[in-house]
Write a protein that binds this DNA or RNA. Sequence first.
DNA 1: TTGATACATAATAATATTTTTATATAGTGA
DNA 2: TCACTATATAAAAATATTATTATGTATCAA
Lengths: 105, 105
Amino acid sequence: MITHDNAYFEMKDENITKASKALKAMGHPLRLKILCVIGEQELPVMDIVKQVGTTQSNISQHLDILREKDIITSRRDGSKILCRVRDKNLLVLMDAMQQTFCAVD
Amino acid sequence: MITHDNAYFEMKDENITKASKALKAMGHPLRLKILCVIGEQELPVMDIVKQVGTTQSNISQHLDILREKDIITSRRDGSKILCRVRDKNLLVLMDAMQQTFCAVD
DNA sequence: TTGATACATAATAATATTTTTATATAGTGA
DNA sequence: TCACTATATAAAAATATTATTATGTATCAA
């Protein structure tokens, strides 16, 4: 449940650090698009490449960044690497972003 | 109401751009801390400087960035400039972040 | 074992961000 | 006006990020 009754947001510096790293990782148009494309699925890298639309190398490097920051995980399945968003909470966050930035108003 | 029944997140490129800019703006530890410190309040720059803890110049430049990206607004009140978070939705987003990154589990 | 597909890595050049230091401007009260 | 407080701006150095190009490695199927 999301509640908020303080005037300010209490966050320990440690959490500020964690959160800002995650936001930074999501704060790049290609990486955000990657996350949107993956959503709740588990997708091979090449599918991501095709849907996002840049070079395979570029996607691979951005996936690395998302992995380093613990935003996504991946596992090998045969010749493919399947990627998915690590944390259900991040999907919630993305929902909130959709509400915020894709407002229908 | 937040709902999510697609496997992926549909976001127009235009919204991806907007959202990633906002995330990028929030994705710096000092700027995120600034936002947490402000919260729902309206705070003079010097209060922010004191609570965040870096130079006045540095804060001023980060505030500029937050203003440029439409994350905060500010108005003059006598000799002070009062800052606040522009959009209620952003506070919701910050709540979601708090849930995500400050999990009590 | 060869060739094809899927993905990763390295190096580098271009560009952007961040912090610092110094200085400028605006308001306020004496 | 003067000194003081609050805030902004400029310039430069340090550092980080990004895209590109080329190449490397793993898997698979024939």
